[in-house]
Write a protein that binds this DNA or RNA. Structure first.
Lengths: 370, 370
DNA sequence: GCCTACTGTGAATGCGCTTTCAATCCGGTT
DNA sequence: AACCGGATTGAAAGCGCATTCACAGTAGGC
């Protein structure tokens, strides 16, 4: 590893010019076979590997696409987490993992590599500079990068925003891909109401800061309205995090509340819900635990639904009825869009895709096997 | 996006030289505050983002680490898989996902970004060139990159090999991190023998091509030898793939065989095993299905164990006793090692780490909750 | 009021490769 | 034997930034 060989070394050793060496790698057919062999042999002997940087600099393109996503987990809990191997942590990760996987695959198909970087909350623009400067284009999970930075960067290279609604008008020139949260929740709710004849529904949402959760709640509202059920202004319960633990807690809270109310004489055994609708799978799984613990049977006593379609959702018993999010596809679409932006459609109207979701009817609502 | 601004543009606009612009980004404190502000303002107005390529070229380092791992899934099954969302596929991915996650985190801690690239089987050196040229160092999952290429590349930048034993002598100058497969399986087997008093064990391994599976089998052999049990030369059964489906099939085969043998009068109810030991969790989970189907109770009638500690392993019922592989840690260690190689310990004896594993005693062997 | 010691900044060079543009080579022609 | 068109190859000019090295200011010290 004394001094890394360059085109010059290879050129000298094989008795050609550096231009020819370059051509051997870039466009092999334009070099006579005998020459090519000679160059490749020299390269092999020298241990030559073309410098991506020099290549990129000279050709003004890196062949790399990027992805910025939120940090996996709290740095604080890191040491404990390593041992504890927390469930929530695991499930959370799948979210971005799926996107990574989708992007990686699509990127490879187009001959790109994938650069990934999680943004730590505090870290300012180091992330941005690091990634933005080394890629031909990249995708950002909503709320990962400060709007201001995005604004600057998007002037230099294509950026596509993933999930979450357009944040504000400043960024509406960016391409954007989201998932049909509202549609999915509406359809799922409709299913519960019409196909299962359930009426007393409760919706457990996340914080207002989660655009996904909010969109889902809107879908819920729409379904209620369409069915002529009372439409509430707010979720029956909000949680700060959308974790299993919170879902469990929320369930306890709801059932306790219902118990008290029916205890003091509600209207006809009253307020115990027939269906508990959670804004994501994590919470729904937590709810299943809580219900199991309290001896409430699912779906016989109460139906439970989630949202996301994480793998865990169909491993639990009863398998969770949910809305499957095409996260992998989201990643793939992001790449397709970027590639298009890097090709013919350099400019052109900003695109805004909404990926369709599908309702997975499983046991926890009374459908499916078991 | 007409023409992307460069240092020159920023320099001109802010009335300084390009050297000063560069300093503002590289070493802000060396520039007077008023000047710095002026430069940053100009940069913002212009939408300037430093070119990672130019930076890397000039400073001979990229600030990026790489990871090469095997392709996620068959390209053939891609379209079906998207819909089918195959379980095996999912679980397999977790393997590399965990490593990615570990590397990403550690890399970020050290100020590096992570470049990932799955290697397609056919693709020749494109992968190598693509990644190797753009990173300061990288990790390779065993058998992902042709030995020959690795040899060339490792002369240019640090490479650490993950999992799998050293392949052969040619590569023994590479750093190498593996997981204590044999130790783990030995300890797990010892547990079954000594703590549960089980004697009639069967081991289901994978193909000989899997070094991990082979190492695990060795651990099994050692435990048998230590306990004075008969030591077999080969696993009781080998499967081609190590999937759930195969595990299920293998289980059927074993039980059918045992049934026949005891049917024709084996010695005392004889050859039905007391414990079925699988070389990985996937197969063990498949086995649980098969056993459930056949009405064989676990762990009462037979104990079952896996290896890997995939999340699924503790979601199944009964929860699977297994050996937990620290994949995330593996990723982190890889980065630590690379960083060290890029720092003080540029050269020095090749390191070979073996990460300790821990046995997770759960219900499927008769331990644990439930 | 001249000299030393810094602090900030600019000029210039090169990192390793791609990419015209032009020169050279080749076999076949006239 | 001079000539021609395409196939190969070379020469040279950057790509955008980091980094000496040297040079202006500016203080502080005598």
């Amino acid at each position: 590893m004394s001094t890394t060989p360059t085109v010059y070394d290879v050129a000298e050793r094989s008795g050609v010019s550096i231009a020819t060496v370059s051509r051997v790698y870039r466009n092999p057919d334009s070099v006579r076979e005998t020459t090519r062999e000679r160059v490749l042999a020299a390269a092999r002997e020298l241990g030559y590997v073309p410098s991506g940087n020099a290549r990129g600099l000279a050709s003004r393109s890196t062949g790399v696409l990027g992805l910025c996503f939120p940090d996996y987990s709290d740095p604080d809990t890191e040491t404990e987490a390593a041992a504890a191997d927390a469930d929530d942590d695991h499930a959370f990760m799948l979210y971005s993992d799926q996107i990574i996987r989708g992007m990686e695959r699509a990127a490879r198909r187009h001959g790109y590599a994938l650069l990934i970087a999680a943004s730590l909350k505090g870290g300012p623009e180091s992330l941005v500079a690091k990634v933005a400067g080394r890629v031909d284009g990249f995708a950002v999970l909503a709320r990962t990068v400060p709007t201001e930075d995005l604004d600057v960067i998007s002037r230099r290279l294509p950026v596509v925003m993933l999930a979450g609604p357009r944040e504000n008008d400043e960024l509406d020139h960016l391409d954007h891909i989201e998932v049909a949260n509202a549609d999915g929740q509406r359809e799922l709710t409709r299913h519960l109401i019409e196909d299962h004849g359930l009426r007393r529904l409760v919706f457990v949402g996340g914080s207002k800061a989660s655009p996904d959760a909010e969109a889902r709640f809107r879908g819920f509202q729409e379904a209620c309205r369409a069915a002529g059920l009372p439409v509430r202004e707010e979720p029956d319960l909000r949680t700060e995090m959308m974790t299993q633990a919170e879902g469990e807690r929320a369930t306890d809270a709801l059932l306790d509340r219902a118990g008290e109310e029916s205890g003091d004489g509600g209207p006809g055994g009253g307020t115990v819900p027939e269906a508990m609708i959670f804004a994501n799978d994590q919470m729904a799984v937590g709810a299943l635990h809580a219900l199991d613990r309290r001896g409430v049977r699912v779906p016989d006593d109460v139906a439970v639904t989630g949202f996301d379609g994480i793998p865990l959702s169909r491993l639990v018993r009863p398998a969770l009825t949910t809305v499957r999010q095409p996260m992998r596809q989201l990643g793939e679409e992001a790449v397709e869009l970027l590639v298009r932006r890097l090709g013919e459609e350099r400019d052109g109207e900003p695109v805004s895709l909404m990926l369709p979701v599908t309702v997975a009817r499983r046991a926890s609502c009374g459908c499916g096997e078991r």
